[in-house]
Nucleic acid binder design. Structure first.
Lengths: 390, 390
DNA sequence: GGCTTTTGTTCACGGCTAGAGCATAAACTG
DNA sequence: CAGTTTATGCTCTAGCCGTGAACAAAAGCC
């Protein structure tokens, strides 16, 4: 999001600004609103919109509601406009969706898998190739969310599935590079946080903290609408700090990791059940519903860890997604009981709110979409689009 | 650093870019270099430099070295150019400096104080007023570094000095607001990190971690050259996460804070000496020099905590300032012994380097300067300057 | 049906940067 | 020492961009 420095770049920069405003607003805002919000002259907006419409990037339709005055148009995604393919790969299944500018996601396929890299990624690669053939140049990128740290280049580790340095782009084996380049592979927590920042409770928040609970716990700081992804792309791993206090060895190689005390695995362990290997989602849900000591222990661990992170980073809001929503709903009292005393005194008068994500389990998928459009909604991305249509 | 959107803003934006390049380069780069680095046409650079020189923002001098071809000029700070007043307020003394564009800091005064808010800030306020009178409109801002969390508006807590919500701007009681507005009050760790990002080892680093050790421990993440300051300005408090494992109550109100195991206070405590109240800097230094168990314990605690933060944030480099430089020098073995095992396995092949700051104890002062110039090197700041000279 | 309100379109204008051509000032060459 | 080479600075024109005002359009209101 850096600025133009020459008068030639100004046009490209403003095209991007306008299209991003359309996307961020869910493709529901009228041209008059956009003109005002971006501080453009009406004439400028006229030229920009005409250009974007000609490039099949948007399409104007009469606004459904009028008050007085000349009716305005809403900027909608163009029927031949760009598509983002987004995938959420969980431990037991994946979900594939096609997304239009504005953020509408059409789920195309949900398929269970056996937990092996090949078993999960082979069929997914075929499905992606099929969609890319079908939609041709409209596909501007592929985003894939995965439940583990992702190093630059797409090497993924999912400790409790036994994935070690799995080369996701290679296993997906996409035939021709889509216009947007190689698939964007990312951590599910980071993507969920991105979605939360764009379309959830972290929207407009300068510093927020997002925690995603599933079998494990992931967490990431969101600054100015951007999750911090670290130097190698593996920066959403708050679960692997020794905030729990215990000395139990973690599958990640360190000891005492916070994540071991919070997720589905922790619930199963506390209830005396078998855990690990990405199995037992339903059982964990039952343990959670039953309440009692396992839930209280997880909620307390969550609260204590959140307090530590709030001390360190001073976020404005803390959001929880995945299983965290349910832990918060069922164990709020225990969570707050550990949260308060863990805070520095100066943070206690106005502690940041801890809230369930507005996006539920769709966060990772929507975040994968956003990351594709983030790469597309740049002067370079729009240039590529223009060329691919010529 | 957001961009221009109208052709009118382009000029202002490029003035800022040029002047910032001069400042960041230490006012040693030649006009030809600047032109190339910023990707400007020679004609554009000509106009911009002429404008900045006329506004007394910079001053061209012949370059000392030539190769071949027409000799170029170096852009130096103008003799009547903007000045930043920067202060580092420690527990036992403060230091005041006047800084030119480019980063040269002339120390004006170092004065011990008694540790009370009034005793420390009263004389400092007078010194600042005196300098503001002397230099008139040249003073574009005042930056003050303090050894505790600083909330927006300048309310400061220094737990072990007994400072509670001390209103620093009010106690400084600057007569007329300087052109730059109210003094910029900030945490010493955050300022040290800022300096490190601009003129130290974190320069050009996308994600870095800076830890400042004094009596306590402060730490902050540096992303794209900017320390993350939190929603209320109090985001440099990594020392108040329970990474140590102990349950000892901390002066901050929480328990088990990491900072209690690392700084000068920890060294004194481990050696069986009295600690707290901002006293005992020399004794702590002697404990450190003596080596042995107190040093080893502090170094191990530091290493273990760094590993946790590296796991969570995936920084490229970790830098240490203040007493951390000495702990690293004398206790590197113990530190690394705890650092490695605390890392996730995937981080162990290429763990981030842990390095002593290049700026030593001057970091906080230089960071205070940078924060003043950050506010000045904006289109608005340069406009104010223009008006104040008219 | 005329008036008001709001929005879209068109166009002249001023401002900005790029780039080319020319001037300048040194170091190098023989 | 004079001509050549190289790098830089200056000046001017062309092309592009956004602004803002005037005008047209399309509704709701009385």
């Amino acid at each position: 999001m850096n600025g133009a420095t020459t008068s030639g770049e100004l046009r490209a920069h403003n095209r991007v600004r306008l299209l991003r405003a359309v996307h961020d607003g869910g493709a529901t805002r009228t041209r008059a609103q956009l003109t005002r919000d971006l501080g453009l002259a009406r004439g400028t907006a006229s030229v920009l919109v005409a250009g974007l419409a000609e490039d099949a990037l948007l399409h104007e339709e009469p606004a459904p509601e009028h008050t007085r005055g000349r009716p305005t148009q809403v900027a909608r995604p163009h029927p031949d406009g760009p598509l983002a393919l987004a995938v959420d790969v969980r431990e037991d299944a994946w979900e594939l969706a096609a997304c239009e500018l504005g953020g509408d996601a059409h789920v195309l396929e949900v398929r269970p898998h056996d937990g092996t890299p090949r078993g999960a990624l082979g069929p997914l690669g075929e499905a992606l190739a099929e969609q890319t053939r079908r939609h041709g140049h409209r596909v501007v990128g592929v985003g894939v969310a995965l439940a583990g740290p992702v190093r630059l280049g797409g090497l993924v580790d999912v400790a409790h599935l036994g994935w070690r340095s799995v080369d996701v782009p290679r296993l997906l084996d996409l035939p021709a590079p889509v216009p947007g380049g190689a698939p964007i592979v990312g951590n599910d927590t980071a993507f969920a946080a991105l979605a939360e920042a764009r379309r959830g409770l972290l929207r407009g928040v300068r510093v927020g903290l997002h925690l995603h609970v599933d079998f494990d716990l992931g967490g990431v700081l969101v600054v100015d609408g951007r999750p911090l992804d670290g130097a190698n792309g593996t920066g959403a791993e708050f679960g692997h700090m020794p905030l729990g206090g215990g000395g139990r060895p973690c599958a990640c190689g360190a000891t005492g990791c916070w994540g071991m005390d919070v997720g589905a695995n922790a619930l199963l362990r506390q209830a005396g059940l078998a855990y690990g290997g990405g199995q037992g989602r339903e059982q964990a849900a039952r343990v959670l519903e039953a309440g009692g000591p396992p839930l209280a222990a997880a909620a307390r661990a969550l609260g204590r860890g959140i307090a530590a992170l709030v001390n360190a980073h001073d976020p404005e809001v803390v959001t929880l997604s995945g299983l965290g929503v349910d832990v918060l709903a069922a164990g709020r009292a225990a969570l707050l009981e550990a949260y308060g005393p863990g805070l520095m005194a100066i943070r206690r008068d106005r502690p940041p709110r801890v809230e369930p994500s507005a996006l539920g389990w769709r966060g990772a998928l929507l975040g994968a979409m956003e990351s594709v459009f983030d790469a597309f909604l740049t002067p370079e991305g729009l240039d590529r689009w223009r060329l691919s249509r010529a």
